[in-house]
């Protein structure tokens, strides 16, 4: 894995409150280029808040969030970030938009206002569709596709930006098991072959610890920051979820 230790995300003493209820308390970590990071934690642990802080959708009351070494501002690093929201379940079932039109939205941040899509954009769109193997479906409505295919459309949309980092929020919600496996294979491929830094938020600990290189476990505070192997060895999971849950680490 091409780890060159260029910091992508740096959180320094970050605390966040919703209506004076503290959701995150004194969070510190660094995500370097080339890492495949899984942010996990139980429901209400603040993991989605953490993601929104990284994206600049929220600003912390204390501490600082640095993206590519600069304070995270909305839209500032838009060309470096491929954001994949938790979308499949929320997709408006009648929204008339084709696969290609969705992927083209990934080019908006590259173009700026008033600019129409050019040859370079078309190429980025074609490449992205190719990579997720949806070239055949480019003219179809996204709502006509299966959950797994829809998820790949959103990956393609993010890839069309030609980002340095992919940020995914609960990407496999509403996707069947078989598609989930393919989906994680695709992420691993993007991480290893294309050197993309990947940050994924998930409640699906079993799958995540088998795929990622780094686990960040949050529950208001940062409980764990390290390799998935260590995470499973120690009794973090019992601490978080109670006894009786077991995890099997597959060998890749």
């Amino acid at each position: 894995m091409p780890l060159n230790h260029t910091p992508i995300v740096q959180m320094e003493h970050v605390s966040f409150e919703y209506n004076s209820a503290r959701v995150l308390d004194d969070i510190n970590f660094t995500i370097s280029a080339g890492e495949f990071v899984g942010i996990i934690g139980p429901n209400g642990s603040g993991k989605t808040t953490l993601l929104r802080l990284i994206l600049g959708l929220l600003t912390p009351q204390e501490g600082s969030v640095l993206l590519f070494g600069k304070k995270s501002h909305l839209g500032q690093n838009a060309q470096e970030i491929g954001y994949i929201p938790q979308k499949v379940t929320q997709l408006e079932t009648r929204f008339p938009i084709t696969v290609e039109e969705v992927v083209a939205l990934g080019r908006v941040s590259q173009r700026g206002l008033f600019r129409q899509l050019n040859f370079d954009d078309r190429q980025a769109i074609t490449e992205a569709l190719d990579l997720v193997q949806l070239t055949q479906q480019r003219g179809r409505l996204i709502t006509d596709l299966s959950g797994g295919q829809q998820q790949r459309v959103f990956i393609a949309k993010a890839l069309a930006t030609r980002p340095k980092v992919l940020i995914l929020d609960e990407p496999t919600v509403g996707v069947d098991i078989e598609s989930q496996e393919k989906f994680y294979q695709l992420l691993a491929q993007l991480n290893k072959e294309h050197g993309l830094t990947i940050i994924i938020v998930s409640h699906d600990i079993d799958v995540v610890v088998n795929e990622v290189s780094t686990v960040l476990c949050v529950n208001k505070t940062l409980i764990y920051d390290g390799t998935p192997k260590e995470f499973i060895k120690e009794d973090y999971i019992e601490k978080l979820y109670g006894k009786g849950r077991r995890f099997i680490l597959h060998n890749h």
Binding site: G56, V102, L105, V108, S109
Partner: peptide, 18 residues
């Protein structure tokens, strides 16, 4: 394209700098 993005996914549009 900005209006389409806004209608399709307001949050993602925001992240992309719109």
């Amino acid at each position: 394209k900005e209006l389409l993005y806004l209608s399709f996914d307001e949050e993602a549009a925001q992240v992309s700098g719109i």
